[in-house]
């Protein structure tokens, strides 16, 4: 006998995935703010500099922030920034994405990366640091 799945359960995997996607990273954003100082030669949260801005980074397609001129490698990367992709990229940018303009050996320590990602994610939800237009345009 074939049992039909209850209709409302069909959406369960989707809802679970959505929950994972929107969950705050497990890192420490306060410690991450300190680590973010390493990024300040090239990046800012809310405006493009030598590197693109970070407001709204998680969930943004790589190489697609409006108004920033990316390397061909980043433009064609074809992935979306998530905790996982950002963690892998930050660990060794030129290894993860050969041809990236981010000529930086990487953030070696996994805890540092986790905290840094938590800071960027938290800042993106903070309208004082990331005004809504800047936080949402990246989607």
């Amino acid at each position: 006998m074939i049992r039909r799945r209850r209709p409302h359960l069909r959406w369960l995997p989707v809802l679970l995935c959505a929950g994972v996607a929107s969950a705050a990273p497990a890192g420490d954003p306060i410690r991450g703010a300190s680590i973010y100082q390493r990024c300040l030669a090239c990046h800012a949260l809310s405006y493009h500099r030598v590197g693109p801005k970070h407001c709204g980074l998680l969930g943004r397609r790589a190489g697609r922030a409006p108004g920033y001129e990316y390397s061909a490698a980043m433009r064609d990367a074809g992935f979306t920034w998530s905790q996982q992709t950002l963690d892998a990229f930050l660990a060794a940018p030129t290894q993860y994405l050969p041809g990236t303009s981010m000529g930086y050996a990487g953030v070696r320590d996994a805890r540092d990366r986790r905290d840094l990602i938590a800071f960027i994610a938290g800042a993106s939800r903070d309208t004082a640091r990331c005004p809504p237009a800047q936080g949402s345009e990246a989607q």
């Binding site: 100082q37 390493r38 000529g103 930086y104």
Partner: peptide
């Protein structure tokens, strides 16, 4: 100071590459 601090990290990260 923020720019200079970042520059220190940027060069430290470039040197091994």
């Amino acid at each position: 100071a923020g720019l200079e601090r970042g520059a220190v990290s940027a060069y430290a990260g470039a040197i091994p590459l």
